[in-house]
Amino acid sequence: MENKTKEFKHLEKWQKTLANCIRCGYCYEHCPMFKYTGWESDAPRAKIITAFGLLSGEVEPSESVSQKMFSCFYCKRCEAACSSGVALTDIFTDAKKDLVEMDLKGPGTTSTTKLTCARCLICLKACPHEARSYDGKNIVVDPVKCQACGICIEVCPAGAATIQNSFGTDRNMLMDRASNFFSTHEAAKAIIFACNWSYYPDLQASVLPDAETRDKNYEILVNMCGGRLEPQLLMAPFLYNAWGVMAAVCPEDKCDHKGNVRAKKTIESLKNTFKSIDIDPERVRLVEIKAGDKAKFKAEIDTFMDNLNKMGPIR
């Protein structure tokens, strides 16, 4: 087939890389999109194949193409897993630039602002990627700059900052899952929130038999970025008599969204609240996990659970 690259001036430079991707699919192992929908077309390899198709002319730029390209949390799990060193998210960003120029701005995971926006401009300040601006009338989101960290959603006092498709990571969905875990597991004691970077030792896409999970006493919920941990979410498990809540974030300078700094502050203030009402502040705990350090994550969970077992239930 003939090359047809003229309309893709940003994507064009990846031509060779797209050929060098061996299409092994290793990148979709723990992609939160793929894990949530189970469709291969939502996995990172699919975006790479699509990018190739756009360049070769086999794929027509369309709404559904941009929907795919713009759906990414930039957690970079795919890059860490790639067998061939492909810079996936840089490729996605360039594809997004070209699609935007064709007026194909996919909503994807990007936050948009609804009519309810109070124009307080808090989200502008909170956005770590300068993706939000104010044009004098409305908040404008730059879909290329936005990395779907979701911080704006959590800070918006009017609930006006939203995400089109959260792939199971928004506050309400996580709260539902926490509630569901406690109502279906007698031994349930804790919820562990983990940003997708902290490499949770979890199944990829398979489901275990009941007999294997019945005695589980904690559940790991992926909240994408530590920056999205708000008191309401962290407190939700206590509604169901949780013994404790742990959150895993990236180490000091490693978070692309500075979400770990926010998380630290949030957890500190929760600890203070616990102290003031005579509840052991160690029931909420923040740990820093280097990307890919499964062993440390597991060890931290074990220590936390041991501690909780010593403390016993709150009630």
């Binding site: 061996i22 299409r23 092994c24 699919g25 469709w39 291969e40 077309s41 699919a46 194949i49 699509t50 198709g53 086999e58 794929v59 027509e60 369309s62 559904s64 193409v65 795919k68």
Partner: peptide, 19 residues
């Protein structure tokens, strides 16, 4: 079920040289 051409294109390949 998926029938959009953009989805079909993705499911038209695997780890081989074919499509």
């Amino acid at each position: 079920i998926k029938t959009d051409p953009s989805d079909l294109y993705i499911y038209g390949s695997d780890s081989s040289v074919h499509h």
